[in-house]
Design a protein around this nucleic acid. Structure first.
Lengths: 146, 146
DNA sequence: TTGCGTGCAAAGGTTTTGCATGGCA
DNA sequence: TGCCATGCAAAACCTTTGCACGCAA
């Protein structure tokens, strides 16, 4: 796919190790940059962006665009263990930032629906449902009541 | 809610008229700005941003953040003609970049499902289904065959 | 007259690009 | 040795903010 070879560099190894260590969480470019500022070799943001871009392309990292005025979030995806084979969907709470992983027939069903009715091949590994989780919704309701 | 009064200005009227005329479509701030560049009185982008922000707050306009490197999309919502806010879902083709917006019962149904079964309040304005559109899928298949 | 609305200019932030240098294979 | 990778600086973008002036009520 990617015509050119990928070199094995120190920056790439360390970045990958860091992303793996934060699996299940989201990190921003800023956070990554700051981490390496304090731990070992600093990595230039340009390099971070370029690696992340590749990883998003090959599916080893998911990119979430939560807000226009804050950096995009990235999350490492373990293709071995996780939700790529049995379809798994992600719900991200926009209030508390919690990420919920769901496996659910109903959700899988919409994949078929999108394909059959709309000719669209959904990619669940990259699709995120944004909204508000139960806990945050309760808080919101409680606030509205007063 | 909004303590201060809202004046009825020419810019606001014209902006509103334009948004209404493009109901069911997405427009970016850039598109709006360019439209008024050529039709009647130009409106400064600052003003456009400020009005849109208000309209998003009061629910008369939906804001979609689809991509980091292009402007946010806005869509006028007619609150008069339906008690339920019209829900629009988005499919973005990762290959050609095409954006498809769908209004579909089946998709609205999953909103209810997520709420009932998973306690999650889906925000369709922020949620984008990523995948591959019909045309690109055909091309991909054609390429794989050779 | 009061105070919101407008829009220019400038700032703010994230992300990309140009380019010379460094490092993997 | 031939590319790819790196990272600084600068550019490109979208969006917000400061401020003086304009205009609705």
């Amino acid at each position: 796919m990617n015509g050119s070879t990928q070199y094995r560099t120190k920056q790439r190894e360390e970045l990958l190790a860091y992303l793996r260590s934060r699996q299940g969480h989201h990190v921003t470019v800023n956070e990554i940059s700051e981490f390496f500022q304090g731990n070992g070799t600093p990595i230039g943001v340009t390099t971070i962006y370029r690696h992340l871009e590749r990883m998003v392309e090959d599916g080893s990292v998911n990119k979430y665009i939560l807000d226009k005025n804050s950096g995009a979030c990235f999350e490492y995806v373990d293709k071995q263990h996780s939700c790529v084979q049995p379809v798994c969907f992600h719900c991200k709470c926009e209030v508390c930032g919690k990420l919920i992983h769901l496996k659910c027939d109903e959700l899988e069903h919409i994949q078929g629906h999108l394909m059959k009715q709309h000719g669209f091949a959904l990619d669940p590994a990259r699709t995120v449902f944004y909204g508000m989780c139960e806990a945050c919704r309760r808080n919101a309701v409680a606030r509205d009541v007063q």
